[in-house]
Design a protein around this nucleic acid. Structure first.
Lengths: 249, 249
DNA sequence: GAGGGATCTTCCGTTGAACGGAAGACCGGC
DNA sequence: GCCGGTCTTCCGTTCAACGGAAGATCCCTC
């Protein structure tokens, strides 16, 4: 009851969530002390909450004493609306990978970023870490631009305000990007040539489900791969099919 | 403070989890009253806890007032150990689908069931609802039998005690199944011919990661498809590759 | 094998936050 | 307008969460 900031008392639940949030991609297994430190809680409190979380099976205690996220959380997460979208898109993403040989993504708009829901690597694929759960920038990836083009005006102005460069090809002039977004909205197709990573070309199209959640499908290819233009028709077909499939449900 | 059983007071966290558990595959969106009823909580309490869960972003409140599981839970679930396994297996599952044309699964042992981690449908695929998160019986599916063959003796005896029939082909005699499990342990290959669903043949192999978590890869095919035997070599190859890939990590 | 540092677990008195009944607000429907 | 349903807010009581501190356990060092 000392170091906590200005009467900002956190409810028990908030503290428990803080413990869950201590886990991230680089920290999938944590010890009691690490969790307490990362969540900013006294050891004794963390210990009790962790016991509760473990008995609720949200966390699992490993034989070595470490804690990790339990299968129950994974299972609950499957009930999120993202999953329905993923399920609808998956077969078409598979086709896309099969016909183009490149890596396909599915992403949704999440705040000022693109959240990757699924990624299927192709045989001719680049080594990529666009793994589900990753957030990509909106202004320099193809999926990002496809989403941004259809995003609410507020998001767009917010993103256009800070265009930090990822490579020397990243578009950093808001006017240029704004014009490009207009084109994307017209043609439906977004591209990024080395704007996010050198040597990588990507192509994406948005899925506009009426008033529903916005998503985008993208392909990633090495810049050197031949016949990049041939990847557009299959992409166009896949997005149309996914849009239709969502409309049906 | 009335209807609660025999002094069994549930901690705040337990109650919150009860609310989360009110969601299931058939109930992805719930109202306040439905949640309170399903979790066995007074409306006022449920209301407060839901407000907490929502502000913690574990739940999302839709414009229409309904609650649903939030993206944050999905994101946390990705940190569960299941995801690492899925990621390791995914490329090989894709290959499997591409070469055989049939539907491929990845499942792990979970209590007395097989938990499906991933399912990729093939072009020649059956309509199937083996969607991630589904639990399959251990005694009459190929993945189930593959897992059961390598499961701890305790699980095995427990499952063998209650072999309920799913079709008229389901093995219900513990002795017959036990003998089959011995064979599976020897050959590494498990089969199920219409034992779970009529018209469906399935083939599976276990992934035995030393002392690590046990998994199995399976293929589902219509009984009528020609050259079912040709699906074994690709399956063998995939499981070997996945096992190796896990060993490396 | 004694000493020291680290992490984990248990205990317990205090206190403030969770609890939930009840009343009020807000819908649509007949 | 009246009514059944659902949602939200209020507030006094109470009891469970809180966390400091002491004890247990492990492991490494000398």
């Amino acid at each position: 009851m000392s170091t906590r900031r200005a009467g900002e008392t956190r409810s028990g639940l908030t503290r428990a969530v803080a413990l869950l949030d201590a886990f991230d991609d680089a920290h999938r297994v944590l010890t009691l002390t690490a969790l307490a430190r990362r969540a900013g809680l006294p050891i004794a409190t963390a210990h009790r909450l962790l016991a509760d979380l473990t008995s609720a099976r949200l966390l699992v205690r490993r034989p070595d004493g470490g804690y990790e996220i339990g299968a129950r959380v994974w299972h609950l997460g499957l009930l999120s609306p993202h999953t329905a979208l993923r399920e609808a898109a998956l077969p078409y993403l598979q086709d896309l990978v099969a016909t183009t040989g490149h890596t396909a993504h599915l992403a949704v708009l999440d705040g000022a970023g693109a959240l990757v829901l699924e990624r299927l690597a192709g045989t001719r694929s680049l080594p990529t870490r666009h793994t589900p759960g990753l957030r990509l920038p909106l202004h320099c990836t193809a999926v990002g631009k496809a989403l941004l083009a259809h995003a609410p005006a507020e998001t767009r102005t917010c993103v256009l305000a800070g265009l930090d460069p990822h490579t020397r090809y990243t578009i950093t002039d808001p006017c240029v990007l704004r014009r490009q977004l207009d084109q994307i909205r017209g043609s439906g197709v977004a591209r990024s040539t080395q704007e996010h990573r050198l040597g990588v070309f990507s192509l994406a199209m948005a899925i506009t489900g009426g008033s529903g959640p916005l998503a985008a499908v993208g392909l990633l290819a090495p810049l050197s791969s031949p016949r990049l233009s041939e990847t557009l028709p299959p992409l166009r077909h896949a997005t149309a099919a996914i849009t239709a499939s969502i409309g049906r449900a």
